[in-house]
Write a protein that binds this DNA or RNA. Structure first.
Lengths: 144, 144
DNA sequence: CCAATTTAGTGGCACTTGCAACCAGATATT
DNA sequence: AATATCTGGTTGCAAGTGCCACTAAATTGG
C-alpha cells in the first residue's frame, strides 16, 4: 500500500497544479494567465520562432499553442508574420508590451519555484532542479 | 535568460502532462481515465473515507472530487453512504470492481514513474522521489 | 436555546489541455 | 511535371481542473 512511486506520481500532480495556481495569481496583475506568461517567456527568449518550436519546447499539443498564440496576438503581446520561405509557418516575435512584462513575469516563475521548494535546502533545491530537467528531457525525447 | 528555475518550472509542467497522457493510455484497458484511477487508488488505500479527505490528500478542489466520485459511483467502482454521525458527509468505500483493478492500476502508476525517470540511475530516482514528496507536502501545507 | 459561523458537498462557468479531422503549402518519388 | 507524402497550423469537441455561489448540516458563542 501507499508506496513511494505512487506518492511521487501524486506529488508531481500536486506541484503542477499548485504552481499554476500561484503563477495565475502572480500574473493576474499583468492581465495574463499563467499559460500565456510561459509562452511570452519563451518568445522573448528566442526573439523570433515558429509555433512548432514553441510546441516542441513546451511539450504541448500544437493546437494548444495555436490558441494561446492567437490570443496573445489579439491582446497585443506578439506579432505573427507569414514566413517568406515557408508560407505555412508564422514568424512570431514579441512586441514592446511583451518586453515590458518579461522580467516581471520571469520573476513570478522564479517565485513559484522558490515557493514550491520552500522546505528544501539550497543544495536540495539545485539537485531537484537538475533532476527535473533530466526527467523532462527524457519525457520529451521518449515520445519521439 | 533561460535560467534554471524557469526551466525547472517548465519541466514540472512537461512531466505532469506527459505522465497523465501515459496513465490515461495505460488505464484505458480498464475503462478508466487517469484521474479516476488515482481516486480509486486512494479509496482502496484508505478503505473508507470522505470526499474531503480525498480533496486534502490530492490537493484538488473539492468540486473536482465531487464530480469524479459521483462518476465512479455511477460506473460501479465506489459506493457512497450517508454518514450517520454527520449527515453532510458520505462514507466512500471501494466495491469489488475497484479491488479487482487496484493492483493493476497501481502498476500503471508505477510504470509512469519509471518512464518519467527513465534517464536516471536508481539512486537519482530515489532522491527525486524524496524531493518530490518533500516539495508536495510543503505545497499542500503552504496554502493552509 | 437561538443566531452566527464553519464545514461538506453540489452546480455552473471558464480556462487549459489533448485528440482527431482537416487544410494548405512543402518535399519526395516516379 | 504529376502524384503522394509530410509538415505547420486551425477548428471542434471532450475531459480535467479551479473558482464562485449556493445548500444543508454541524459547531460555536451568547
Amino acid at each position: 500500500m501507499s508506496n513511494i512511486t505512487d506518492n511521487a506520481f501524486k506529488s508531481i500532480s500536486i506541484l503542477y497544479r499548485k504552481s499554476h495556481i500561484w503563477l495565475n495569481e502572480g500574473c493576474a496583475q499583468y492581465a495574463l494567465t499563467g499559460a500565456q506568461a510561459v509562452v511570452i517567456l519563451i518568445v522573448c527568449d528566442f526573439e523570433m520562432l515558429t509555433q512548432d518550436t514553441i510546441t516542441k519546447r513546451l511539450g504541448l499539443d500544437k493546437s494548444v499553442i495555436a490558441k494561446t498564440v492567437s490570443k496573445l496576438e489579439e491582446i497585443g503581446f506578439l506579432v505573427r508574420t507569414t514566413n517568406a520561405k515557408d508560407k505555412r509557418t508564422y514568424d512570431i516575435r514579441p512586441t514592446q508590451k511583451a518586453w515590458d512584462v518579461y522580467a516581471l513575469v520571469k520573476e513570478q516563475v522564479d517565485l513559484c519555484f522558490q515557493r514550491m521548494t520552500q522546505p528544501m535546502t539550497d543544495s536540495e533545491r539545485a539537485e531537484f532542479a537538475r533532476l527535473l530537467l533530466l526527467a523532462a528531457e527524457g519525457a520529451i525525447a521518449a515520445d519521439d
